[in-house]
Design a protein around this nucleic acid. Sequence first.
RNA 1: CAGGGUGUGGCGCAGUUGGUAGCGCGCAGCGUUCGGGACGCUGAGGUCGUGAGUUCAAGUCUCAUCACCCUGACCA
Length: 412
Amino acid sequence: MKLSQSFVKTLRDAPKDETAKSAKYLVRAGYVHKELAGVYDFLPLGLKTLRNIENIIREELNRVGCNELQMTALQNPDSWQKTERWNSDRMDIWFKTELSAGGELGLGPTHEEPGTAMMKDYIKSYKDLPANFYQFQTKFRNELRAKSGIMRTREFLMKDLYSFNTNKEEHDKFYHLIEEVYKKIYSRVGLGDCTYQTFASGGAFSKYSHEFQTVLPVGEDTIYYNADKSIVLNEEVLNDEVLADLGVKREELESTKAAEVGNIFSLGYKFSKPLDLSYTDQDGKKQLVYMGSYGIGVSRVMGVIAEKFADDKGLVWPEEIAPYRYYLVAIGENAEKKAEELEKQYSELILLDNRNMRPGEKFADSELMGIPYRLVISDKTLEKNSAELTARKTGEQKLLTLDELVAILSKV
RNA sequence: CAGGGUGUGGCGCAGUUGGUAGCGCGCAGCGUUCGGGACGCUGAGGUCGUGAGUUCAAGUCUCAUCACCCUGACCA
């Protein structure tokens, strides 16, 4: 990609209505544009980053046999009324609207109800189970207060997965499988070292749920953990009963701030019962479907990663999710020619800064944008038939011959 | 939703006791520069969030309202 083709400009000053470090940089570097409080446009670089995270999640879910589909954002009140979640007293984050022809509609904040209702058409027999589906879907939540840039918004991209099983035992196996999948996902997006599976409130239908929390000073949650971090729990379930269940003492736990980057829930019959999602078992008897739901806020994960790794010069993306892996700067006419050739061949990997600017500005932007590696080709490096490679994260620099460079580029 | 704060060119800000609205960055043109956010000259761009009111006169005072930010509450 050539930067000269982009309409996006980087900003020297952060807009004053952003206070989160990640939000300031995401706006300055041209990844996102703010429409309203908690409502953001994803610009080309931002969208590419978001898609990279999305694709990692997709790959890992598909690997274990999950089915991707897409449901609607517009919600029929019917199924929500059956679970009593249409009522704003029970769900105070609804965006509701009306049909011109009459009748109410909601903008989906989550999809348990429509997903359960939909599956009534496909699950009839024990032979139809187990089943699951997931989607990447824009969710709408009328939060009283949006904050922290793209980490807590009113419109956001979420991966939601729903599972349907004959009984708890079968469900538990899937639940544990997804636990492992999630760990792999967080590891691949670069959060593996600082993300923990925690015990959290399970609501009315199960004792616990699990959250995945990334240690982050500006996180909204407080988590407690023991010495080897084999036990981690959310502050909301820090009580005597839970401590007894987990076999730890309060004094053995330390606390830290963290941001929730995912959750997994055993739903049991909470939705299948009111919506009557059932199957006929081997004995010809009607049984309720045992359900689970598993969410990852994709755009929030992007915000958490931005917040986690940004330094005083700007964003620092882990390699797997960066919009481009190399930021290429050419100095001098011969170098420019060489750079154009490289960009043409590896346009998915290389962001070529061919804007008519001085090198210093380009270097600063490469750092602001957080591209993992900066490549500089100049008349000087060309004398040695080489290019200079600088790692964004460490600042480490080395000279590569052009042959070595091409070898690296072809391998990615 | 409670408490607090902020609204002035695209962005960041200044604006005194009420008296013709400024600066930096950015933008446009010309020239010199070109490995760490260059420089000179010229120029464009603002009903001061919105609406009422006080006054000869309001960016400035009063009231209302909207938006945005922070803390809290809320948060499958």
